[in-house]
């Protein structure tokens, strides 16, 4: 929704000063105009696709969320304003899913930050075998999430799996808390390398001279890390955290394969999927979609406004 409206207003305001600028620089105007036209032309396919596939569907999901719309009972479709929101927001399943999602997000991102930082330091400073480490850490990033999830599921299946056997053969995936721990492990394994790569790019910005000087002055390794490395890479850390938090918040693949949302382990995405595809309830599914969109917007807002996370690309926009 927001994309289409901002697009309209911005092109509206952007168009009016343009002729003024063109008149000022008469000599440049032909080349400038051509450049501008080419810019729009080159961006059009990308912009139109992104807006067509997200803009209208978002508006449409707002409309759907205000209707009773169950594909099992298409005759009973009617406009009910905010009743779906009341239904969802008063449902214990929804709040359980919100909690599960929030806890999974906070726990996994926190552990990923610590592990990712260690991994980044290893990759950055390794004296031997740096290439091997960098290559192998990319494997969890590249592997299909569903494949990794199946690997974890079979590992924890009593009888089949080595981990289940090692821990005495308890079916861990059939209880809420142990299942969520397994889901967290799977999620952390898969996404820590990505975090580490982003952090490693930040580490490269820390000048070696500064660290050496601090070492000369007697700062310990830990002091150097906290007082020099972390402050300098703060922007990189915040960007990595923002990306991973938003990504973790939409957790779906791992949960689908590992628990399918049973025993109260549904995330908000899982619950939406179940209502929509299994329950064929478009009204409720869309309501949940809108609520998730709002929650993600709040998270992004908090990161960008409160923590001052520099949104990538927002600073320069390519000016040189």
């Amino acid at each position: 929704m927001s994309q289409t409206t901002t697009e309209d207003t911005a092109t509206g305001t952007g168009a009016s000063p343009a002729p003024v600028a063109a008149r000022k620089k008469v000599a440049l105007s032909e080349g400038k105009k051509a450049e501008r036209r080419l810019g729009w032309l080159l961006c059009a396919p990308a912009a139109l696709t992104m807006i067509a596939v997200t803009g209208w569907p978002i508006l449409y999901s707002l409309l759907l969320s205000m209707q009773r719309f169950d594909l099992k009972f298409p005759d009973r479709t009617e406009w009910i304003w905010f009743d779906n929101y009341v239904t969802v927001l008063s449902s214990p399943y929804w709040w359980n899913a919100v909690w599960v999602t929030v806890v999974l997000t906070v726990v996994t991102v926190a552990i990923e930050l610590v592990l990712g930082m260690s991994l980044a330091l290893i990759m950055h400073r390794a004296l031997v075998g740096r290439g091997i480490v960098r290559t192998t850490t990319l494997i969890p990033y590249g592997i299909v999430t569903v494949v990794a999830a199946f690997s974890w599921r079979f590992a924890w299946t009593p009888g089949t799996g080595y981990l289940a056997e090692a821990l005495g053969g308890d079916p861990v995936l059939t209880e809420k808390v142990p299942a969520l721990i397994v889901v967290s492990i799977a999620e952390i394994w898969k996404t820590t390398p990505f975090m580490a790569l982003l952090l490693m790019a930040g580490l490269a910005l820390v000048p070696d001279d500064l660290l050496k000087a601090a070492a000369m002055d007697g700062a310990s390794g830990w002091q150097r890390f906290i007082k020099i490395t972390v402050p300098i890479m703060k922007p990189a850390i915040l960007v990595a955290l923002l990306f991973r938090t938003l990504d973790a918040f939409r957790i779906f693949d791992n949960l689908f394969v590992l628990t399918a949302g049973s025993q109260g382990t549904s995330s908000v995405s899982m619950l939406t999927y179940n209502n929509l595809i299994k329950g064929l309830n478009l009204g409720i599914g869309s309501t949940m979609s809108v609520l998730i969109f709002i929650m993600v917007a709040i998270i992004a807002f908090v990161f960008i406004k409160l923590f001052g996370t520099a949104a990538p690309g927002s600073d320069d926009g390519g000016k040189r």
């Binding site: 569907p57 978002i58 999901s61 759907l64 779906f252 599914g285 869309s286």
Partner: peptide, 14 residues
């Protein structure tokens, strides 16, 4: 940054 699941419901119907 978009939550992809938010698109699934409307895209399904569209």
């Amino acid at each position: 940054m978009f939550p992809q699941v938010s698109l699934v419901s409307p895209l399904f119907e569209i």
